[in-house]
Design a protein around this nucleic acid. Sequence first.
DNA 1: GGACCCTGTTGAACAGTGTTCAGAAACCAT
DNA 2: ATGGTTTCTGAACACTGTTCAACAGGGTCC
Lengths: 214, 214
Amino acid sequence: MARRNEHSKPELRALAIGTVRTLVAEQGLDKLSVRQVARRLGYAPAMLYHLFANLDDLILHVNADTLDGLLDRMDAASGMENPEAALTAMAHYYLDLSRAHTPLWQLVFEHRMANGAEVPAWYARRTRALFLMVERQLQRLAPWATEEERRLGARTLWGGLHGVCVLQANNKLDVAGDADPRAMVDSLLRHYLADWSATTNRSPDEASPHGDGA
Amino acid sequence: MARRNEHSKPELRALAIGTVRTLVAEQGLDKLSVRQVARRLGYAPAMLYHLFANLDDLILHVNADTLDGLLDRMDAASGMENPEAALTAMAHYYLDLSRAHTPLWQLVFEHRMANGAEVPAWYARRTRALFLMVERQLQRLAPWATEEERRLGARTLWGGLHGVCVLQANNKLDVAGDADPRAMVDSLLRHYLADWSATTNRSPDEASPHGDGA
DNA sequence: GGACCCTGTTGAACAGTGTTCAGAAACCAT
DNA sequence: ATGGTTTCTGAACACTGTTCAACAGGGTCC
Protein backbone atom coordinates (compact mmCIF):
# COMPACT_ATOMS: atom_id res chain seq x y z
CA MET A 1 0.00 0.00 0.00
CA ALA A 2 2.59 2.56 -1.03
CA ARG A 3 1.91 6.05 -2.32
CA ARG A 4 -1.56 6.57 -0.96
CA ASN A 5 -0.87 10.28 -0.70
CA GLU A 6 -3.78 11.06 1.60
CA HIS A 7 -1.90 13.93 3.22
CA SER A 8 0.78 16.36 2.19
CA LYS A 9 4.15 16.18 3.86
CA PRO A 10 3.52 19.23 6.09
CA GLU A 11 0.13 17.79 7.03
CA LEU A 12 1.73 14.50 7.97
CA ARG A 13 4.34 16.32 10.01
CA ALA A 14 1.64 18.15 11.96
CA LEU A 15 -0.26 14.90 12.37
CA ALA A 16 2.80 13.15 13.75
CA ILE A 17 3.49 15.99 16.17
CA GLY A 18 -0.11 15.85 17.36
CA THR A 19 0.10 12.11 17.80
CA VAL A 20 3.17 12.43 19.97
CA ARG A 21 1.42 15.05 22.09
CA THR A 22 -1.62 12.87 22.79
CA LEU A 23 0.50 9.75 23.23
CA VAL A 24 2.74 11.41 25.79
CA ALA A 25 -0.19 13.06 27.54
CA GLU A 26 -2.07 9.76 27.79
CA GLN A 27 0.66 7.25 28.49
CA GLY A 28 3.60 9.23 29.78
CA LEU A 29 7.13 9.71 28.58
CA ASP A 30 8.50 6.19 28.48
CA LYS A 31 5.67 4.75 26.40
CA LEU A 32 6.67 7.04 23.55
CA SER A 33 8.28 5.15 20.67
CA VAL A 34 8.54 5.41 16.91
CA ARG A 35 6.46 2.26 16.48
CA GLN A 36 3.73 3.59 18.78
CA VAL A 37 3.48 6.86 16.90
CA ALA A 38 3.44 5.08 13.55
CA ARG A 39 0.75 2.66 14.67
CA ARG A 40 -1.50 5.51 15.80
CA LEU A 41 -0.94 7.29 12.51
CA GLY A 42 -1.69 4.13 10.55
CA TYR A 43 1.68 4.07 8.83
CA ALA A 44 4.78 1.95 8.97
CA PRO A 45 7.49 3.16 11.38
CA ALA A 46 9.95 3.78 8.57
CA MET A 47 7.64 6.44 7.07
CA LEU A 48 8.37 8.80 9.95
CA TYR A 49 11.97 9.00 8.84
CA HIS A 50 10.82 10.76 5.67
CA LEU A 51 9.24 13.47 7.81
CA PHE A 52 11.89 13.86 10.52
CA ALA A 53 15.58 13.06 10.73
CA ASN A 54 15.05 10.82 13.75
CA LEU A 55 13.05 10.54 16.97
CA ASP A 56 15.01 13.36 18.59
CA ASP A 57 14.11 15.64 15.71
CA LEU A 58 10.44 14.78 16.04
CA ILE A 59 10.55 15.40 19.78
CA LEU A 60 12.24 18.77 19.25
CA HIS A 61 9.41 19.81 16.96
CA VAL A 62 6.87 18.78 19.58
CA ASN A 63 8.82 20.75 22.18
CA ALA A 64 9.03 23.79 19.93
CA ASP A 65 5.22 23.84 19.82
CA THR A 66 5.01 23.57 23.58
CA LEU A 67 7.57 26.33 24.03
CA ASP A 68 5.79 28.56 21.52
CA GLY A 69 2.59 28.23 23.50
CA LEU A 70 4.38 29.07 26.70
CA LEU A 71 6.19 32.03 25.15
CA ASP A 72 2.91 33.36 23.77
CA ARG A 73 1.29 33.29 27.17
CA MET A 74 4.33 34.85 28.79
CA ASP A 75 4.45 37.51 26.13
CA ALA A 76 0.84 38.39 26.83
CA ALA A 77 1.73 38.94 30.48
CA SER A 78 4.79 41.04 29.67
CA GLY A 79 2.58 44.06 28.91
CA MET A 80 1.31 44.46 32.46
CA GLU A 81 2.09 47.80 34.00
CA ASN A 82 3.79 46.34 37.06
CA PRO A 83 6.92 44.32 36.13
CA GLU A 84 6.78 42.33 39.35
CA ALA A 85 3.19 41.33 38.58
CA ALA A 86 4.23 40.45 35.03
CA LEU A 87 7.02 38.18 36.29
CA THR A 88 4.63 36.56 38.75
CA ALA A 89 2.09 35.89 36.02
CA MET A 90 4.82 34.46 33.79
CA ALA A 91 6.08 32.23 36.57
CA HIS A 92 2.56 31.01 37.24
CA TYR A 93 2.17 30.05 33.58
CA TYR A 94 5.45 28.20 33.79
CA LEU A 95 4.38 26.34 36.91
CA ASP A 96 0.87 25.66 35.63
CA LEU A 97 2.27 24.07 32.48
CA SER A 98 4.46 21.79 34.56
CA ARG A 99 1.42 20.82 36.65
CA ALA A 100 -1.34 20.53 34.06
CA HIS A 101 0.79 18.93 31.34
CA THR A 102 3.58 17.30 33.28
CA PRO A 103 4.65 14.71 30.66
CA LEU A 104 4.69 17.31 27.89
CA TRP A 105 6.65 19.63 30.14
CA GLN A 106 9.12 16.86 30.96
CA LEU A 107 9.51 16.18 27.26
CA VAL A 108 10.65 19.77 26.84
CA PHE A 109 12.88 20.16 29.87
CA GLU A 110 14.08 16.69 30.73
CA HIS A 111 14.67 15.20 27.31
CA ARG A 112 18.32 14.54 26.57
CA MET A 113 19.52 14.41 22.99
CA ALA A 114 20.95 11.05 21.94
CA ASN A 115 24.78 10.81 22.01
CA GLY A 116 24.90 14.31 23.46
CA ALA A 117 24.22 16.11 20.20
CA GLU A 118 23.75 19.86 20.28
CA VAL A 119 20.26 21.30 19.86
CA PRO A 120 19.75 23.03 16.49
CA ALA A 121 19.68 26.81 16.25
CA TRP A 122 15.95 27.07 15.47
CA TYR A 123 15.33 25.40 18.80
CA ALA A 124 17.94 27.18 20.91
CA ARG A 125 16.39 30.46 19.80
CA ARG A 126 13.29 29.66 21.80
CA THR A 127 15.26 28.87 24.94
CA ARG A 128 17.05 32.19 24.63
CA ALA A 129 13.76 34.02 24.10
CA LEU A 130 12.55 32.77 27.45
CA PHE A 131 15.41 34.30 29.37
CA LEU A 132 15.18 37.49 27.33
CA MET A 133 11.60 38.04 28.43
CA VAL A 134 12.63 37.79 32.05
CA GLU A 135 15.54 40.15 31.50
CA ARG A 136 13.22 42.71 29.95
CA GLN A 137 11.03 42.71 33.06
CA LEU A 138 14.05 43.06 35.31
CA GLN A 139 15.10 46.06 33.28
CA ARG A 140 11.73 47.66 33.91
CA LEU A 141 11.96 46.73 37.58
CA ALA A 142 15.46 48.14 38.08
CA PRO A 143 16.51 50.33 35.15
CA TRP A 144 19.66 51.27 37.03
CA ALA A 145 20.99 47.71 37.00
CA THR A 146 23.80 46.87 34.60
CA GLU A 147 23.19 44.42 31.78
CA GLU A 148 25.48 41.98 33.58
CA GLU A 149 23.35 42.20 36.71
CA ARG A 150 20.19 41.71 34.70
CA ARG A 151 21.56 38.65 32.92
CA LEU A 152 22.63 37.10 36.18
CA GLY A 153 19.37 37.98 37.89
CA ALA A 154 17.18 36.62 35.12
CA ARG A 155 19.05 33.31 34.95
CA THR A 156 19.09 32.93 38.70
CA LEU A 157 15.43 33.76 39.12
CA TRP A 158 14.23 31.57 36.27
CA GLY A 159 16.65 28.81 37.10
CA GLY A 160 15.22 28.81 40.59
CA LEU A 161 11.67 28.75 39.30
CA HIS A 162 12.64 25.91 37.01
CA GLY A 163 13.99 23.94 39.95
CA VAL A 164 10.71 24.23 41.83
CA CYS A 165 8.87 23.02 38.74
CA VAL A 166 11.28 20.12 38.32
CA LEU A 167 10.74 18.99 41.90
CA GLN A 168 7.00 19.35 41.43
CA ALA A 169 6.96 17.38 38.17
CA ASN A 170 8.95 14.53 39.75
CA ASN A 171 6.90 14.37 42.93
CA LYS A 172 10.00 15.11 44.94
CA LEU A 173 8.01 17.58 47.04
CA ASP A 174 5.66 14.93 48.39
CA VAL A 175 8.62 12.79 49.35
CA ALA A 176 10.09 15.67 51.30
CA GLY A 177 6.84 16.54 53.05
CA ASP A 178 4.18 18.20 50.98
CA ALA A 179 4.66 21.83 50.07
CA ASP A 180 2.45 23.95 47.84
CA PRO A 181 4.41 24.68 44.65
CA ARG A 182 2.43 27.86 44.07
CA ALA A 183 3.46 29.15 47.48
CA MET A 184 7.07 28.23 46.73
CA VAL A 185 7.04 30.14 43.45
CA ASP A 186 5.50 33.17 45.12
CA SER A 187 8.01 32.98 47.94
CA LEU A 188 10.92 32.76 45.52
CA LEU A 189 9.82 35.70 43.41
CA ARG A 190 8.80 37.93 46.27
CA HIS A 191 11.93 37.51 48.39
CA TYR A 192 14.45 37.34 45.58
CA LEU A 193 13.06 40.29 43.66
CA ALA A 194 12.66 42.40 46.78
CA ASP A 195 16.29 42.15 47.82
CA TRP A 196 17.62 42.07 44.27
CA SER A 197 15.95 45.31 43.25
CA ALA A 198 16.74 46.90 46.62
CA THR A 199 20.46 46.10 46.68
CA THR A 200 21.08 46.90 43.02
CA ASN A 201 19.36 50.23 43.61
CA ARG A 202 22.54 52.10 44.51
CA SER A 203 24.73 54.76 43.05
CA PRO A 204 26.74 53.26 40.17
CA ASP A 205 30.04 53.25 42.09
CA GLU A 206 28.94 50.83 44.85
CA ALA A 207 27.14 48.04 43.05
CA SER A 208 27.96 45.25 45.50
CA PRO A 209 26.76 46.32 48.96
CA HIS A 210 26.94 42.90 50.58
CA GLY A 211 30.62 42.32 50.14
CA ASP A 212 31.87 39.11 48.51
CA GLY A 213 32.19 36.87 51.55
CA ALA A 214 32.72 33.04 51.50
CA MET B 1 31.74 -21.97 34.29
CA ALA B 2 29.19 -21.83 37.02
CA ARG B 3 29.82 -21.55 40.73
CA ARG B 4 33.20 -19.87 40.72
CA ASN B 5 32.41 -18.10 43.99
CA GLU B 6 35.28 -15.65 43.78
CA HIS B 7 33.38 -12.97 45.67
CA SER B 8 30.70 -12.90 48.31
CA LYS B 9 27.33 -11.47 47.44
CA PRO B 10 27.93 -8.17 49.27
CA GLU B 11 31.32 -7.90 47.58
CA LEU B 12 29.75 -8.44 44.18
CA ARG B 13 27.10 -5.84 44.96
CA ALA B 14 29.77 -3.28 45.83
CA LEU B 15 31.72 -4.26 42.72
CA ALA B 16 28.64 -3.77 40.53
CA ILE B 17 27.92 -0.39 42.07
CA GLY B 18 31.49 0.69 41.48
CA THR B 19 31.34 -0.50 37.90
CA VAL B 20 28.24 1.58 37.26
CA ARG B 21 29.96 4.61 38.74
CA THR B 22 33.01 4.36 36.50
CA LEU B 23 30.92 3.43 33.48
CA VAL B 24 28.64 6.43 33.88
CA ALA B 25 31.55 8.73 34.66
CA GLU B 26 33.46 7.59 31.57
CA GLN B 27 30.75 7.14 28.99
CA GLY B 28 27.78 9.12 30.20
CA LEU B 29 24.25 8.20 31.15
CA ASP B 30 22.91 6.60 28.00
CA LYS B 31 25.77 4.13 27.57
CA LEU B 32 24.77 2.50 30.84
CA SER B 33 23.22 -0.93 30.33
CA VAL B 34 22.98 -4.23 32.16
CA ARG B 35 25.09 -5.90 29.51
CA GLN B 36 27.81 -3.26 29.75
CA VAL B 37 28.02 -3.56 33.52
CA ALA B 38 28.10 -7.36 33.32
CA ARG B 39 30.82 -7.33 30.67
CA ARG B 40 33.03 -5.09 32.79
CA LEU B 41 32.47 -7.31 35.77
CA GLY B 42 33.27 -10.41 33.74
CA TYR B 43 29.90 -12.02 34.38
CA ALA B 44 26.82 -12.84 32.38
CA PRO B 45 24.09 -10.17 32.45
CA ALA B 46 21.65 -12.50 34.17
CA MET B 47 23.89 -12.71 37.22
CA LEU B 48 23.16 -9.10 38.13
CA TYR B 49 19.55 -10.04 38.76
CA HIS B 50 20.66 -12.13 41.71
CA LEU B 51 22.24 -9.07 43.28
CA PHE B 52 19.58 -6.48 42.47
CA ALA B 53 15.90 -6.67 41.63
CA ASN B 54 16.44 -4.88 38.33
CA LEU B 55 18.42 -2.07 36.75
CA ASP B 56 16.42 0.57 38.60
CA ASP B 57 17.31 -1.07 41.89
CA LEU B 58 20.99 -1.09 40.99
CA ILE B 59 20.84 2.57 39.98
CA LEU B 60 19.12 3.47 43.24
CA HIS B 61 21.96 1.87 45.18
CA VAL B 62 24.49 3.85 43.15
CA ASN B 63 22.49 7.00 43.83
CA ALA B 64 22.28 6.24 47.53
CA ASP B 65 26.08 6.20 47.65
CA THR B 66 26.27 9.51 45.82
CA LEU B 67 23.68 11.04 48.11
CA ASP B 68 25.45 9.74 51.21
CA GLY B 69 28.64 11.44 50.10
CA LEU B 70 26.79 14.67 49.50
CA LEU B 71 24.98 14.48 52.83
CA ASP B 72 28.25 13.84 54.64
CA ARG B 73 29.86 16.93 53.16
CA MET B 74 26.78 19.00 53.87
CA ASP B 75 26.65 17.70 57.40
CA ALA B 76 30.25 18.76 57.93
CA ALA B 77 29.31 22.29 56.87
CA SER B 78 26.25 22.40 59.11
CA GLY B 79 28.42 23.01 62.16
CA MET B 80 29.67 26.41 61.04
CA GLU B 81 28.84 29.21 63.43
CA ASN B 82 27.15 31.35 60.78
CA PRO B 83 24.05 29.63 59.34
CA GLU B 84 24.18 31.72 56.19
CA ALA B 85 27.78 30.63 55.61
CA ALA B 86 26.78 27.03 56.31
CA LEU B 87 24.00 27.19 53.71
CA THR B 88 26.38 28.75 51.21
CA ALA B 89 28.96 26.02 51.77
CA MET B 90 26.25 23.36 51.41
CA ALA B 91 25.00 24.94 48.21
CA HIS B 92 28.53 25.06 46.83
CA TYR B 93 28.95 21.34 47.50
CA TYR B 94 25.69 20.71 45.72
CA LEU B 95 26.75 22.76 42.72
CA ASP B 96 30.28 21.35 42.65
CA LEU B 97 28.91 17.83 42.55
CA SER B 98 26.74 18.72 39.58
CA ARG B 99 29.77 20.22 37.82
CA ALA B 100 32.55 17.80 38.67
CA HIS B 101 30.45 14.64 38.37
CA THR B 102 27.66 15.67 36.05
CA PRO B 103 26.66 12.19 34.81
CA LEU B 104 26.61 10.79 38.33
CA TRP B 105 24.59 13.79 39.46
CA GLN B 106 22.15 13.33 36.60
CA LEU B 107 21.81 9.68 37.54
CA VAL B 108 20.63 10.80 40.97
CA PHE B 109 18.37 13.69 40.05
CA GLU B 110 17.19 13.00 36.52
CA HIS B 111 16.64 9.27 36.63
CA ARG B 112 13.03 8.28 36.32
CA MET B 113 11.84 4.96 37.69
CA ALA B 114 10.48 2.57 35.08
CA ASN B 115 6.67 2.50 34.80
CA GLY B 116 6.48 5.28 37.36
CA ALA B 117 7.15 3.08 40.38
CA GLU B 118 7.58 4.73 43.75
CA VAL B 119 11.07 5.02 45.25
CA PRO B 120 11.59 2.70 48.23
CA ALA B 121 11.63 4.06 51.76
CA TRP B 122 15.36 3.52 52.34
CA TYR B 123 15.98 5.85 49.42
CA ALA B 124 13.35 8.48 50.15
CA ARG B 125 14.86 8.85 53.61
CA ARG B 126 17.96 10.40 52.05
CA THR B 127 15.94 12.89 50.01
CA ARG B 128 14.15 13.97 53.14
CA ALA B 129 17.41 14.31 55.04
CA LEU B 130 18.62 16.83 52.49
CA PHE B 131 15.71 19.17 53.06
CA LEU B 132 15.93 18.69 56.81
CA MET B 133 19.50 19.95 56.87
CA VAL B 134 18.43 23.13 55.11
CA GLU B 135 15.51 23.58 57.48
CA ARG B 136 17.81 23.29 60.44
CA GLN B 137 19.98 26.12 59.15
CA LEU B 138 16.92 28.26 58.51
CA GLN B 139 15.87 27.68 62.07
CA ARG B 140 19.22 28.97 63.28
CA LEU B 141 18.98 31.90 60.89
CA ALA B 142 15.46 32.92 61.93
CA PRO B 143 14.42 31.19 65.15
CA TRP B 144 11.24 33.27 65.22
CA ALA B 145 9.94 31.71 61.97
CA THR B 146 7.15 29.14 62.23
CA GLU B 147 7.79 25.55 61.20
CA GLU B 148 5.52 26.13 58.22
CA GLU B 149 7.64 29.09 57.11
CA ARG B 150 10.82 27.10 57.51
CA ARG B 151 9.47 24.18 55.49
CA LEU B 152 8.42 26.48 52.69
CA GLY B 153 11.65 28.43 52.78
CA ALA B 154 13.88 25.37 52.74
CA ARG B 155 12.05 23.81 49.81
CA THR B 156 11.98 27.04 47.87
CA LEU B 157 15.63 27.80 48.45
CA TRP B 158 16.86 24.31 47.69
CA GLY B 159 14.46 23.86 44.80
CA GLY B 160 15.87 27.06 43.36
CA LEU B 161 19.43 25.89 43.86
CA HIS B 162 18.49 22.60 42.26
CA GLY B 163 17.15 24.44 39.23
CA VAL B 164 20.40 26.29 38.71
CA CYS B 165 22.29 23.00 38.92
CA VAL B 166 19.89 21.37 36.46
CA LEU B 167 20.42 24.13 33.93
CA GLN B 168 24.16 23.90 34.48
CA ALA B 169 24.25 20.12 34.04
CA ASN B 170 22.26 20.33 30.81
CA ASN B 171 24.31 23.16 29.33
CA LYS B 172 21.18 25.26 29.16
CA LEU B 173 23.14 28.22 30.52
CA ASP B 174 25.52 28.38 27.57
CA VAL B 175 22.60 28.30 25.20
CA ALA B 176 21.07 31.27 26.95
CA GLY B 177 24.28 33.27 27.03
CA ASP B 178 26.93 32.10 29.43
CA ALA B 179 26.44 32.80 33.10
CA ASP B 180 28.65 31.68 35.95
CA PRO B 181 26.68 29.09 37.97
CA ARG B 182 28.63 29.91 41.11
CA ALA B 183 27.58 33.55 40.85
CA MET B 184 23.99 32.44 40.30
CA VAL B 185 24.02 30.27 43.41
CA ASP B 186 25.52 33.09 45.46
CA SER B 187 22.98 35.54 44.09
CA LEU B 188 20.09 33.22 44.89
CA LEU B 189 21.19 32.56 48.44
CA ARG B 190 22.15 36.11 49.27
CA HIS B 191 19.03 37.81 47.97
CA TYR B 192 16.51 35.17 48.99
CA LEU B 193 17.89 34.70 52.47
CA ALA B 194 18.23 38.42 53.08
CA ASP B 195 14.60 39.21 52.38
CA TRP B 196 13.31 35.94 53.79
CA SER B 197 14.94 36.39 57.17
CA ALA B 198 14.09 40.10 57.21
CA THR B 199 10.38 39.79 56.43
CA THR B 200 9.76 36.78 58.66
CA ASN B 201 11.34 38.75 61.49
CA ARG B 202 8.09 40.25 62.71
CA SER B 203 5.84 39.98 65.70
CA PRO B 204 3.90 36.68 65.54
CA ASP B 205 0.56 38.29 64.63
CA GLU B 206 1.66 39.78 61.29
CA ALA B 207 3.59 37.01 59.58
CA SER B 208 2.81 38.00 56.00
CA PRO B 209 3.92 41.60 55.53
CA HIS B 210 3.79 41.64 51.74
CA GLY B 211 0.10 40.86 51.34
CA ASP B 212 -1.00 37.93 49.16
CA GLY B 213 -1.36 39.66 45.82
CA ALA B 214 -2.02 37.99 42.41
C1' DG C 1 34.87 -42.85 47.12
C1' DG C 2 30.36 -41.89 45.57
C1' DA C 3 25.84 -39.84 45.86
C1' DC C 4 23.42 -36.06 47.10
C1' DC C 5 21.92 -31.27 47.41
C1' DC C 6 22.56 -26.58 47.09
C1' DT C 7 23.83 -22.46 45.00
C1' DG C 8 26.26 -19.50 42.03
C1' DT C 9 26.12 -18.82 37.24
C1' DT C 10 24.91 -19.00 32.44
C1' DG C 11 22.85 -19.35 27.48
C1' DA C 12 19.08 -18.71 25.22
C1' DA C 13 15.01 -16.75 24.52
C1' DC C 14 11.23 -12.96 24.54
C1' DA C 15 9.49 -8.64 23.62
C1' DG C 16 10.71 -4.41 22.91
C1' DT C 17 13.71 -0.28 21.04
C1' DG C 18 15.80 3.26 16.99
C1' DT C 19 17.33 3.12 12.43
C1' DT C 20 18.43 1.86 7.53
C1' DC C 21 17.57 0.47 2.91
C1' DA C 22 16.21 -2.17 -1.12
C1' DG C 23 12.28 -2.46 -3.38
C1' DA C 24 7.25 -2.37 -4.18
C1' DA C 25 3.29 0.37 -5.37
C1' DA C 26 0.77 4.14 -7.01
C1' DC C 27 0.46 8.50 -9.25
C1' DC C 28 1.95 11.71 -13.25
C1' DA C 29 3.59 12.95 -17.79
C1' DT C 30 4.77 11.64 -22.14
C1' DA D 1 1.44 1.90 -22.78
C1' DT D 2 5.95 3.44 -21.12
C1' DG D 3 8.87 5.46 -18.16
C1' DG D 4 9.94 8.27 -14.21
C1' DT D 5 9.13 10.02 -9.75
C1' DT D 6 7.42 10.07 -5.26
C1' DT D 7 5.49 7.69 -1.32
C1' DC D 8 5.60 4.11 1.48
C1' DT D 9 6.74 -0.56 3.44
C1' DG D 10 8.97 -5.21 5.09
C1' DA D 11 12.69 -6.93 6.65
C1' DA D 12 16.74 -6.67 8.72
C1' DC D 13 20.47 -5.01 12.21
C1' DA D 14 22.16 -4.06 16.54
C1' DC D 15 20.72 -2.93 20.55
C1' DT D 16 17.81 -2.88 25.19
C1' DG D 17 15.79 -5.11 30.10
C1' DT D 18 14.26 -9.32 31.87
C1' DT D 19 13.20 -14.28 32.76
C1' DC D 20 14.10 -19.07 33.34
C1' DA D 21 15.49 -23.80 32.62
C1' DA D 22 19.56 -25.94 33.03
C1' DC D 23 24.39 -26.63 34.13
C1' DA D 24 28.61 -27.01 36.96
C1' DG D 25 31.22 -26.96 40.87
C1' DG D 26 31.63 -27.07 46.37
C1' DG D 27 29.97 -29.01 50.67
C1' DT D 28 27.97 -32.60 53.17
C1' DC D 29 26.58 -37.10 54.28
C1' DC D 30 26.76 -42.14 53.85
